[in-house]
Amino acid sequence: MVGRKSLDALIRLYALQNVLLALLAFGLAQGEWPLVLAGLVLLLLKGVLIPRYLFWLLERLGVSHEVESYLSIPLSLLLGGVLVGIGLRVGSSFVLEGAQLPEAVPVALSLILLGMLSMASRKKAVTQVMGFLGLENGVFLLALAETHGLPLFIELGVALDAFAAVVLAGVLIFRIRTTFGHIDTARMRDLKG
């Protein structure tokens, strides 16, 4: 997700990630219906609805589908690699007793760190939202790995919050486009101190 230059590929990658996460949830479920249900809702919400919304947003905005970053691709790949390394290194101290899937904890941490990297280094407002979604997936994976996943209604509430945040961000991006004529957050710096 760090090295890609095309936004469309990024969104597809995100959708794929969610399908994999949902499969993992099904795999861990062992026939427990709350987990299966949570997986289904997440699959629908994050695997289908959010990617569709993002594609629609890009279409309507009429901006280039290119990721613009403060960092060059090799540099962001390098930084991403370092962050993944950190995630894997410190991951072991995050594994709690009775974790369901201890191997996935470092992966989740790396995802969270990569999400933060893309939020901090990308210029376009849309790509920052993508970074946030990646981070959020990392948190979801952490919940799956450490426990059986959060209780069902909490999980749904969290997903609903994330969905609302993305929709709200989309509306704001439209307004940014009409007000500034671009969606480059690097050029929004009126407020200081």
């Binding site: 704001l172 500034f180 407020l191």
Partner: peptide, 22 residues
């Protein structure tokens, strides 16, 4: 009601607030 400065403030708030709360 919007405007350039309000937009910038809202965007910053939404992004930082979301990461923090995550």
């Amino acid at each position: 009601r919007g405007g350039a400065r309000a937009l910038e403030a809202t965007w910053k708030y939404l992004m930082l607030g979301s990461v923090g709360i995550a």
